[in-house]
Design a protein around this nucleic acid. Sequence first.
DNA 1: CTGTTAGCGCATTCAT
DNA 2: ATGAATGCGCTAACAG
Lengths: 355, 355
Amino acid sequence: MATIYDVAKKAGVSPKTVSRVINGSRHVREETKNKVLEAIRELDYYPHAIAKSLKKKITRNVGYVVPYGSDFVFRDPGQLEQLKGAHNVLTGEDYNLILSVPNNGREALFEVNRLLKHREVDGLILYAMEGVETLAKDFEEKGLPYVSLGKCYPEQEYNFVEIDSPSGGYLATKYLLSLGHRRIGFITEPARFLAPAKESMIMGCMKAYAEEGLEFPHHLVLEGDYTVSFAEQATGWFLSKDPRPTALFCASDPMAWGLMRGLRKKGLTPGVEIDLLAGDDLPFTRVLEPELSAVNSRLHELGAEAAEMLLVILRKKQETGTRTKIPGRYLRSELVIRGTTTGRSVQRETAGFHR
Amino acid sequence: MATIYDVAKKAGVSPKTVSRVINGSRHVREETKNKVLEAIRELDYYPHAIAKSLKKKITRNVGYVVPYGSDFVFRDPGQLEQLKGAHNVLTGEDYNLILSVPNNGREALFEVNRLLKHREVDGLILYAMEGVETLAKDFEEKGLPYVSLGKCYPEQEYNFVEIDSPSGGYLATKYLLSLGHRRIGFITEPARFLAPAKESMIMGCMKAYAEEGLEFPHHLVLEGDYTVSFAEQATGWFLSKDPRPTALFCASDPMAWGLMRGLRKKGLTPGVEIDLLAGDDLPFTRVLEPELSAVNSRLHELGAEAAEMLLVILRKKQETGTRTKIPGRYLRSELVIRGTTTGRSVQRETAGFHR
DNA sequence: CTGTTAGCGCATTCAT
DNA sequence: ATGAATGCGCTAACAG
């Protein structure tokens, strides 16, 4: 394969001039430029990206590390939305995204070292997880660029983007209460998937009850695991309560699908005998039947925002050689009302339709 | 950040010795080795991956190019299975996967150049697509390692892995015919997503009819687009036929979900009033309701196999400097019978249950 | 506007 | 068993 020297020789100029042409410097005579271009074409020359990297000390690669294994990422539509958001932004700026999906925290630390310390990547998008705190602080100290999805530690003020789960829970619960519901069943985020400092949606749910001066139904709260099958099984648990809940709210869409399936098996239709509110509002869900009311978590934006933040840091570092900190950002959820929250289950009850 | 020279100086040896220690050469005295290791630890030294790449002329990156845009990849569970299969194998061998999702063939050619000719990657997994032929042949000529998902051109004999769609269609149709079905509705793969040389499943469907000496219902064939919504709409078209089909078979799982939704809206239950056979058997589908009978396309294996093949080529090239060709491989689909194919719709009919 | 020179950080002959 | 010197292919000072 041709090198820049071959091109230089063929065009009868110096390597530096070839470099100038390639990198679009204006200080080249039109005629020289054309000679060079011609030589490049004839030799089918492409600059060696690695050599360039070594010289410029940037790779144009960004690592994306999620510590829960490849099934978790590739088969969870919510994860994929985040990933897609980041990927879109990054590739739009000619960065490659290197996805790493270690199985646990220990392996994740290893991966992060491999990528960042060996300088395979310029920066990192990092899933907040148990045990990541020391790592994050190490990066900060060393000036290694990263942005985390969720806070890595409670006092973290910069370089993270996080879903405001409590506010989502608050929004959802407030709404369900306004429909007249009092006994709401909740499935929360799995504790092990919560970022070290991330607060659960359940805090918001409790706040909504408190504001109305109502007692929170602690006995109707289940910790979920984000899977369809778990939620399906949980349906039985909720329905076995007496009196049973008139509405269910869960922390993710896949769990809502599970609830839906569970309810259907018991002959209950969401929006009729019982209300159902989902927790992500994924694009995929919108195409399913029936149309789920949901709290929109804006996961795509979350990933995109993380990437944007990282790009700002990277650009600053490259252009001025200085470190930047960007204030952490919370994304507020939005309520999307569709067919599965009608309040009819409450009306029935007040009308005496117990069963 | 420390370099190999810093380590050498600190340990009182030459850079070469440090290199030997790092790369596990046996020709180092235990004592020297320990000194070096100690220095590495103290300096928190990590070898610079880019510099190493430049020297060794390998990147340990593999490109994965799919030319239909990021929605197509990140939101189609079938695509994700292939990707996951490849990702698993590649990362298992310490390769990074660089995903590129250009929007069309023209951009794809550009991407492929960017990745391979600029040597950002050692090799490529390439989605077969219209217009890829010249590119593939160019790679072969230049000895650039690639494996394609699907054939890039009809005569391609090597370095591809492909789903044997016709055999899947044959299997599916043979089975449905054995249940007594005669009027089967088909939704095929979208022509634009077919690899240049890939044959449609419909060839196999026709063959199955021919073998039984039955006339193929050409009027019941629709070209799909792999989306849920298309299939949902198609349901009406199928049901408007008189007499209407007693079974439906489509080329992908998402389309089967669409059919299911369409049927349910018309009050028809798959497996009861009409049989339904899906086309991928994705893990995700297995968790949905009702449980879909399907032709298992083994997409995860497809991606994994492509990666394995590429690794063989890469290893050979690295170890011996020679090019290798691996005979193309077809993956045969398997039939997975669950709840949505029972033949009851045919029995009803023969019993006089027209409606 | 253009060329010379040096060096990014590593691995690798060829010595010893 | 270890070291000195060279170069991978490129860009960037510094001249001119």
